[in-house]
Amino acid sequence: MTAPLRVGVVGVGIMGADHAERLASRIAGADLVAVADADVDHASEVAARHPGVRATADAFDLIAADDVDAVLIASPGFAHEEQVLACLAHGKYTLCEKPLTTDSASALRLVEAERDKVGRPLVQVGFMRRFDPEYVELKHLIDSGRLGRLLVLHNIHRNKTSPPWFRDSSSIVNDSLVHEVDVCRWLFAEEIETITVLTPATSGRAPVGLRDPQVAIFQLAGGGMATTEVFVNSHVGYEVRCEAVAELGSATIGLGQNLLVRRDNGYGGHIPDDYRVRFARAYDIEVQDWVRACRRGTVVGPTTWDGYAATAVAEAGVASLATGRPVRVELADRAAARHLCPEQGA
């Protein structure tokens, strides 16, 4: 493809509007041509910020439009299955924000639809940490073997406050912990076999009914292990860290040490308020790589299988949350995804 990739964005809430601005102003080789949202007034407001962009209330009209080459889906997760199926039916490259879908059965249906109806990858799932420079450097270090075999990962994932749609404790598993699910599968290059979700004493600042923080333990297929603390009402800021412990050493990312200031008998740096600041560069790289891949006729990054596997682990995590006991992750035969040959991914 020599002409710019004409992109439509479905769902222009916080993340979708951020992606629309990114596509319109910072991504090379792409033109933002349309946005869709059930709140058509809001869609029109977002479109008006970018000359020549049209707004619609109908996501399926946008997906079917002849002047839309590729679709970025940032709508609520419950809408993803039908929207991704429409993209597959029209042969449109798709970047679908996580979750791929909200349950493993529907996610597997997308894996199978991509295999049976298209026969090649068209969908990338928006686990943007695979594009974050620090995570990429850590992945390269692990894969190089310089630290020996990876044994343990320790993750910390903290939000300043939880978003209003976190109505129950399972939201922490499905919407926050799921990022570490994908990170661990990617860094170990293995599937997660069991997950245990534990709930220590709940913070007095957490909303009523939300068990926060939570601690998850993953057992990987090759014997490795990962721990993750998720604390979505830390009242400090947005912090994401990862320590990889291997046979010959360890490595830590997310310490926020790009700018370390010493003054008044103290030292420190800035902790951002939310993910759009912490992972701004990762989102830019993710979308830019997606656009370049679409123009080449390929797919990079997490596949529908990765989206399905993450959802299956999260499902098991919600079951473990109810009991505090380990729950085995049940996955379909990986042969269902043999058609997926991404340039990058687990």
Rank of each mutant, 00 (worst) to 15 (best):
I27K: 08
P76I: 02
G16T: 00
G209H: 03
S176T: 13
A86K: 08
M128W: 13
R325K: 14
V287E: 04
D175L: 15
V300M: 13
R263G: 09
V125E: 12
R130Q: 15
D289L: 07
D66W: 03
L340I: 07
L255Q: 11
V111P: 12
P133E: 06
L5T: 06
A332C: 12
G29K: 09
L62I: 01
R281P: 00
R158V: 03
V318T: 09
C87S: 12
T94V: 10
G237P: 07
V327N: 02
S25H: 10
E82H: 06
L110E: 02
D212G: 11
R292C: 04
A309G: 01
L23C: 09
T56V: 10
I27P: 12
I253E: 05
L198P: 00
I156F: 06
A107G: 15
F127Y: 15
V329F: 06
V12E: 11
A65R: 12
V240N: 14
E82T: 07
A332M: 13
S106I: 00
D264G: 06
C96A: 14
V208S: 09
E81Y: 10
T228Y: 02
V318K: 02
R158C: 14
A251F: 13
A3F: 00
G256C: 00
P76S: 09
P207W: 07
A17H: 10
F131T: 14
P51V: 05
V329M: 07
E81G: 07
L32C: 03
R120V: 09
L198C: 03
V300K: 10
D18Y: 15
V178K: 14
A346T: 03
G297F: 05
A322T: 06
G126H: 10
R241V: 04
R26S: 13
S144Y: 11
V53F: 06
G126D: 11
L72V: 15
E343D: 12
S171E: 12
G224K: 10
L187M: 09
T228N: 15
V40H: 06
E45Y: 10
S171I: 01
L85H: 11
R328C: 05
A221T: 01
A79L: 09
I192D: 13
G148Q: 12
V277H: 11
V9C: 09
A336R: 06
R54P: 13
Y275I: 15
L340E: 15
E343N: 07
V300A: 14
M1A: 15
A221K: 11
A312F: 05
A65I: 02
A312P: 09
R146F: 05
V313T: 06
V7M: 11
A216V: 08
D273Y: 07
I195D: 12
L321N: 08
T101Q: 03
S176P: 04
D69H: 08
F60N: 10
A70V: 02
D31S: 15
L5C: 13
V183C: 13
G11W: 00
E229M: 15
A280D: 14
S171D: 14
D284P: 01
L220G: 08
G224H: 08
P302A: 11
V197M: 07
Q344P: 01
V136D: 14
G204D: 11
P4F: 05
